[in-house]
């Protein structure tokens, strides 16, 4: 009996707090930056797989999204610029049971690290590569990157970018990736499901996540963060199994999202094990 005690509101922890180094939050990503959303989708996907956190490793390169490895509360590795995939390859070869996730940006993975990307895809390394594509070198001041769309403005192309950007899913497919998907950070649920699928996929999986950079890309291209998201809503179409050749991003046609490639192929560590461990025990 007695008067009902005044209920003290116990703060409920955020469901992802066990996966994040909370002492480092708030993170450095700007207000309106989509990297945080992609990171949340990635953590949600890792949680949904049900795999023990000790069996994961996250590797990041340099750049805004490269900070991801520093914020995650599992084994992680913040590597040198462009070399996230070689370090991930090393982890995978030393500990083949680990699920290695590379979380990095378009500049790190496709400009300075482009060669590493194509060769890891060619070998069908069993790693999951998540590329946060914000169309620009965000951290260094908004220079035109290898993914900046044609005619987009950047600090080194004030009159519009004269170059053509990479078509990342085509590049991944042509190099030999066995799982390729593209989503935007606004399609968070699809993105999280896709990352979960990519983690469970055996072989080189690549997920491209389009993400706004309001400070360095949006400001020069007259897009507030919410305008970019409305663009993602209005100017994208979902077309699974689309031909990778038609996935280029420009302002004249709609951006195609979806899962484009999902094929089975023996991964590098399986082949390596078969050729070097199984045969040596036989002889």
């Amino acid at each position: 009996m007695g008067s009902p005690a005044v209920k003290k509101e116990v703060p409920v922890p955020h469901p992802l707090e066990d996966l994040v180094r909370m002492e480092r939050i708030p993170h450095i990503w700007c207000s309106g930056c989509g990297t945080g959303s992609v990171f949340t989708a990635c953590l949600t996907a890792m949680k949904n797989t049900g795999i023990n956190y000790d069996d994961f490793a996250m590797v990041s390169g340099i750049g805004c999204s490269g900070r991801g490895a520093g914020y995650i509360n599992i084994d992680s590795f913040h590597t040198t610029h462009g070399r996230a995939i070689p370090f991930a390859t090393g982890i995978k070869m030393a500990r083949p049971e680990t699920n290695v996730i590379v979380f990095s940006g378009d500049g790190d993975l496709f400009a300075i690290g482009g060669n590493h990307f194509i060769h890891a895809a060619r070998r069908n390394m069993d790693i999951t590569v998540i590329c946060v594509n914000n169309f620009i070198y965000g951290m260094t001041g908004g220079q035109a990157a290898a993914t900046t769309p044609h005619e987009a403005k950047s600090s080194t192309s004030m009159g519009g970018n004269p170059e053509s950007p990479f078509n990342l899913p085509l590049l991944a497919y042509a190099a030999g990736a066995t799982y390729v998907a593209r989503w935007t950070m606004l399609h968070s649920r699809d993105l999280a499901d896709s990352i979960e699928e990519a983690i469970n996929h055996k072989g080189f999986s690549f997920v491209e996540a389009l993400s706004p950079c309001p400070i360095n890309y949006g400001r020069r291209n007259k897009q507030k963060p919410l305008d970019t998201l409305r663009e993602y809503h209005a100017n994208t179409i979902i077309k699974n199994n689309a031909d990778p050749g038609e996935l280029g991003i420009d302002f004249k046609q709609k951006v195609i999202l979806g899962k484009f490639v999902d094929i089975e192929k023996p991964s590098h560590d399986e082949q390596y094990h078969r050729l070097y461990h199984e045969t040596s025990t036989k002889s």
Partner: peptide, 15 residues
């Protein structure tokens, strides 16, 4: 849970 997935800051969630 859409706000929870979309929020870049781990600042909102629902139960």
């Amino acid at each position: 849970h859409y706000c929870e997935l979309l929020c870049p800051e781990f600042a909102i969630f629902s139960t």
